[in-house]
Simulated scan of single mutants.
Amino acid sequence: MFSLWLQSVRWGYARMVALRQFLYNKKIKKTFFYKKPKVISIGNLSVGGTGKTPLTIYLAKLLAKHQIVAVLSRGYKRKSVDFKVINGLDSALTAGDEPYLLYTYFVHNPNVLIAVCENRTKGIDKIMEYKPDVEVILLDDAFQQLSLMPHLNILLTTFDQPFFRDHLLPVGRLREPRKGASRADIILVTKSPTNLSSLKMEAIKDSMQPYYTKSIPIFFTHIIYHNPIMIGDGKADKLPIVLLLVTGIATPLPLRNYLETNGHKVTHLIFPDHHWFTYADILKMISVFNGLSHTDKAIVTTEKDYVRLIAHDWIKPLVQLPIFYIPIEIGFLQETKEIFEKRIIQTVLS
């Protein structure tokens, strides 16, 4: 019975998605194209956890060497509304965790502006009013924004949960049918193993091919974990063996696997994606940490969780304990980084 209910909800959702796409395809709903600035959309077919934020940081660093760049995000779960340029008075609460994390990366870079707005076309217009010399706008999580026609549409899908093996909500994690991949200009298979063979790459490309008609470059990326950074006044830069891992992200298992592969004994507290930590959560973390039967131990978390934690005064009792976050970035397999970057630069300079 429950399975039948899921299938009926899936059918209704599929009809709603199809109707929306039909209205844009038939130009009943308007699509906007900006000759200037150049617009690059970053997104996925599934809900969360594909690595959009590390890619957005990567692209902003790359493009800011050449041009004035703005990043426009919806600012999911922020405690503010409408258009906002993120500044030093903001936090993850007012900006959203991902935009605020981006802001911390580029706070001292005059060539990068971070903004949020629920309406992307309004957001682009407001950015150009605020800073008319912006030449490139990166749209974070905008693959389903059919009201905008970007100059480049980048689709992300993970190695472990590729879109071609997934199903439409609520049966699976897809926001739209697999054939939506046909709108992509570039596909990145993220969170791939570093030892991925050429044979396996070709097999994945072959599995994707039925869902698009044009020749699309496909790149494979992996996660690069950097040295842990201690939160608070401590100076340690090495994690002890025993760890309490605290995560509120969509796919925390890669980090846990990384820590365990490197010999750490991990106890894992899992919270929902984009979770706003409460004082009760902090007390729970402290209680679980104190219950770990080892003297040499620490708490470790992700960058996104870190910016949400520091948004609250009640983090103060937590930073009395050894607590770290681990920065990450994306790396390209098979020396394809230069090819990818050349495609990006060609798009914004053409």
Rank of each mutant, 00 (worst) to 15 (best):
L244Y: 04
L55I: 15
K235I: 11
A280W: 02
S3Q: 14
V81K: 11
G232W: 13
D125T: 14
M201I: 14
D206S: 14
I223S: 09
P110D: 12
T31L: 08
R256T: 11
D206I: 13
K122T: 04
N87D: 15
D82Q: 12
Q21C: 08
L259R: 04
V116S: 03
K284R: 15
V266M: 12
L63F: 06
K205D: 04
E338A: 15
I218P: 07
R256D: 10
A92F: 10
I224V: 15
L6P: 02
Y325S: 00
V348E: 02
E341A: 10
E303N: 01
T56N: 02
D125G: 07
K27S: 15
Y225S: 10
I186P: 12
V107W: 07
T157N: 02
G51Q: 06
K337E: 15
I127R: 02
D141Y: 06
H294F: 01
Q346P: 00
S215V: 09
D237S: 15
K304M: 06
F143I: 00
S198G: 13
T190N: 02
Y58G: 04
E202M: 14
V288W: 08
H151M: 07
Q334A: 13
F22C: 04
H268T: 09
I270F: 08
G49I: 12
T158Y: 07
P240F: 06
A70S: 14
L62F: 03
I345C: 04
S80I: 00
I216E: 07
V85A: 07
A92Q: 12
K38M: 05
I187F: 07
H274G: 07
V242T: 10
K79F: 04
L152I: 03
W5P: 00
P252E: 07
S3Y: 11
L4V: 05
T251I: 08
D97R: 01
D237H: 11
N153G: 02
T301K: 01
L253I: 06
F164Y: 15
